[in-house]
Design a binder for these strands. Structure first.
Length: 424
DNA sequence: CCTCCACCGGAAAGCCGGGTCA
DNA sequence: TGACCCGGCTTTCCGGTGGAGG
């Protein structure tokens, strides 16, 4: 026991030491969380119109009437979720003061993605007792109704990313939208949030019309609006005079170029500051923003590579080997022959050249490689391919694939002999 | 000016896993 | 349960082609 405690103490000392050091490095962040997209700001700049619209549709709830169902559209980072949570909170606060029972229940359909889970989640919030799995769905539905109807109240169910849910069938939406006729004391209305504008086409017409009695569209932010948002958050996130001139403008401009995504703008600012912090700078500069752009891009590419099908990964690996052996540009034929031998070594089926040609085009579309079709006259027409990624990190991501682990074995052999000999 | 390389890329059919319906 | 369908992936087949070299 004594020994154990001593051991703990030593560890504590070490930890203290590390944290002390981390704490004493001049931090530029006052509150880092403000820049995360989970943060709920006190004010939502440039969303007055939408707030107003939402509020006016939801007021009936305060009079004990059923508000219309709402469908909310908008691309990612246009403030849909934040706005709705904001209005929802206000609604609950006011209703509490007015002594009216009114609840907003928020669900993210990417996480809660089946009819069963949605119904169970609603039921349980209102005091029902539905197990995670096991019940027949209609029993869950009954339980949910019973739970809600226990009191005279208005329940607003927010279904974030409904499109994810609809892909697995619109039965839930159908059930939820007609639940009111079976409730005696309470009322339910639905707010669906979607970033897919076409998603209504996948709905049963009846569901579609009852779900979207009202529609609110969230347009993308422009550069100026993004700047206001960043400015507001930066004041909360950083100590005074930490952010150089032009940093916020640059972040806003860059994010505005791509669909006006506030989430991206905030990420950019946060990553810039993190880079500055790591470099132990006292200020965040435009230079840091540029580095952040590169870092975010690289991280994105790596994520894309990770989710590539195995065949594309091994193909890409072949290209990496070619590049490493000093050939910056290569043709479809060259890649194909390396790809073939790699497949044989790993024991994967070999696809046809026609198919590989398509996979190469896909990699091109994803921005992982650059390829153009050129003619070498007498020597035929082909694609000229060039890698466009950080090689080392991509390589390690590819090797994470359990079917490709054994590729690392060959690397050394390949390195010692010349690549071309190796693949004879 | 013609040839002919080494592929490109369209069309269509086959294969396969999953889902649906009687 | 089996017949059937669907959509994604892949193969087969094949016509098309820019330009170096003759």
């Amino acid at each position: 026991m004594v020994k154990f405690l001593k051991h703990r103490e030593v560890i504590n000392l070490i930890l203290m030491n590390i944290f002390n050091r981390l704490l004493t490095t001049t931090s530029i962040f006052k509150n880092r969380d403000v820049l995360r997209h989970t943060y709920m700001p006190e004010q939502l700049p440039h969303r007055d119109e939408q707030i107003e619209a939402l509020a006016s549709i939801l007021v009936p709830a305060l009079r004990g009437e059923t508000p219309s169902n709402i469908l909310v559209y908008g691309k990612t980072g246009t403030g849909k979720t934040a706005t709705i949570k904001f209005v929802g909170k206000q609604l609950e606060e006011v209703s509490a003061k007015m002594n009216v029972k009114c609840h907003v229940h928020y669900l993210n359909c990417e996480v809660i993605d089946t009819q069963y889970r949605v119904l169970a989640s609603i039921a349980n919030v209102f005091g029902g007792n539905v197990p995670m799995t096991g019940w027949p769905t209609d029993q869950v539905y009954e339980e949910m109704k019973k739970a809600i109807d226990r009191e005279d109240r208005t329940v607003i169910v927010v279904l974030d990313e409904v499109d994810k849910l609809v892909k697995k069938g619109d039965e839930v939406l159908y059930n939820l939208s007609r639940v009111n006729s079976e409730l005696k004391r309470s009322r339910v209305s639905i707010i669906g949030i979607s970033n897919d504008l076409k998603f209504r086409n996948f709905l049963d017409p009846r569901v579609s019309s009852s779900l979207s009695e009202e529609e609110i569209v969230f347009p993308p932010y422009n550069a100026e609006q993004l700047r206001d948002i960043l400015q507001q958050r930066a004041e909360l996130a950083f100590y005074d005079d930490v952010v150089d001139d032009g940093v916020i403008d640059l972040c806003a401009a860059l994010a505005a170029q791509e669909h006006g995504d506030a989430r991206k703008a905030l990420d950019l600012l946060r990553v810039s500051a993190e880079i500055a912090e790591k470099e132990r700078c006292k200020k965040v500069t435009v230079d840091h923003v540029n580095k952040a752009v590169k870092k975010i891009e690289a991280d994105h590419v790596i994520e894309v590579v990770r989710t590539l099908p195995t065949q594309s990964k091994i193909l890409l690996f072949g290209m990496i080997l070619l590049t490493e052996s000093g050939t910056a540009k290569f043709t479809t034929g060259e890649v194909y022959s390396i790809y073939k031998s790699l497949c044989k070594k790993v024991g994967l089926s070999v696809l046809t050249q026609r198919r590989i040609s398509d996979l190469i085009s896909e990699l091109d579309m994803l921005g992982i490689i650059n390829s153009i079709v050129i003619s070498k006259g007498r020597y035929g027409r082909t694609r000229e391919i060039k890698l466009d990624v950080p090689i080392n990190s991509v390589k390690s991501v590819i090797l994470e694939d359990y079917r490709l682990k054994s590729l690392s074995k060959f690397e050394k052999q390949i390195k010692s002999s010349s690549t071309l000999n190796f693949f004879e």
